[in-house]
Design a binder for these strands. Sequence first.
DNA 1: ACCTGAACACCGTTCAAGT
DNA 2: ACCTGAACACCGTTCAAGT
Lengths: 230, 230
Amino acid sequence: VAPRPPASERLDRDQVLAGALAIADAEGLDAVTLRRVAAGWNVTPMALYWHFKDKDALLDALVERMLAEIELPGDGPLTGDGPFSGDGPFTGDGLRAVLLAVLRVLRAHPALAAITPLRIMRSDAGIALSERVIGTLRAAGNSPVAAAQLSVILLNAVVGMVTNQPGELAVADRAERDALLGAKRARLKSLPPDAFPNLTETADYFLAVPDEEDWYERGVDFLVRGVVRL
Amino acid sequence: VAPRPPASERLDRDQVLAGALAIADAEGLDAVTLRRVAAGWNVTPMALYWHFKDKDALLDALVERMLAEIELPGDGPLTGDGPFSGDGPFTGDGLRAVLLAVLRVLRAHPALAAITPLRIMRSDAGIALSERVIGTLRAAGNSPVAAAQLSVILLNAVVGMVTNQPGELAVADRAERDALLGAKRARLKSLPPDAFPNLTETADYFLAVPDEEDWYERGVDFLVRGVVRL
DNA sequence: ACCTGAACACCGTTCAAGT
DNA sequence: ACCTGAACACCGTTCAAGT
């Protein structure tokens, strides 16, 4: 997937990240090893240590790169519950738009989504995102403590919608994904309906999502509903 | 931490799990290696392969053991929104009680919490828990699809409350936990207040939680609030 | 049935050395 | 400044062999 230029050229930090991102998207996070990333540029693994302190720093940069793709709404003209609109009734439209913008890029990089929550505050893009979410929550009438906590919960929740989306299994590659799904299906299908009436009724929804857009719409609706005060 | 009996005795599957759980609780999930677990019983790493298919199966069993500790309320006398109380108004008290019961054991094993969401359906205890949560959500008037999805979101959210609890960093051990927290503090404290008014106002809440009980109460309140229909 | 020994194919990381 | 070579200390896992 990654291009292999001659080793004569110098290593470019951004290109390295782009290559690592491609590997993560295509084969999952486990495939992102220093040796593998280095091989994409015909370079030894130790070459990476000049550009990144260690593997953790590379993953931080990877998440930063992803979060930077987010196009926060209202950075242009202010609409809905903007960051500075303390006045007016809180409808949740502003928050909804922000969460949907985050989901757009998380869904494009499900493997990276899994390692984002702990890394949000380690990047400029993540900090800008948090500032925005907290602002929206403050505008909704939440105290500083409450707004801070809710921002953590909300961002964790949208990440979870991606990483826990039934049938997705963003962590593994195709082969073991099918194996894991098969085992899950076998287990759920073997449950006695009298002991597990609710789970047998909904078993299919844990194996695959009937409509992806419904999945994300309903999830965001739930989250926004919890924030809106009446 | 784990006792070291003479190698003369046979390996007991439950004891192995108890030892692994102790390691995870004390030093984090990274410390749980097959070599380390085996060393606790003066046995070679390969001995574990007779008791567990592979490391993933051991982790599954570990999560199962933890989830089995959950004491679901109303398994005795039915109170609140029990699993079979389709009648009566939904107050959310039943759901709240279940989530708090889950949080009680997750908080005791924060390192394991991180790997639970994907493994819930691989254990009897996790399946029983899901059945219960789905039932409560169905009783609240949700459709089968909605109930299934909300159960995933809710369980993921309570896990996130533990793993993302500011100042906790359940993943790492003490030494690097302090290092990571220090870096986070330095970054947040250096933010210009005019560009990040909301984040600078709440920076302290991202470094440590003022009151742990408040943290979990508020989180559960938020989740239950999203479920309750008016 | 239950465990060991030896080996394999990987990891991330350090450190001196090259250019 | 930027990268290599060689080595270290780990991983999970396989497989034949022991008792």
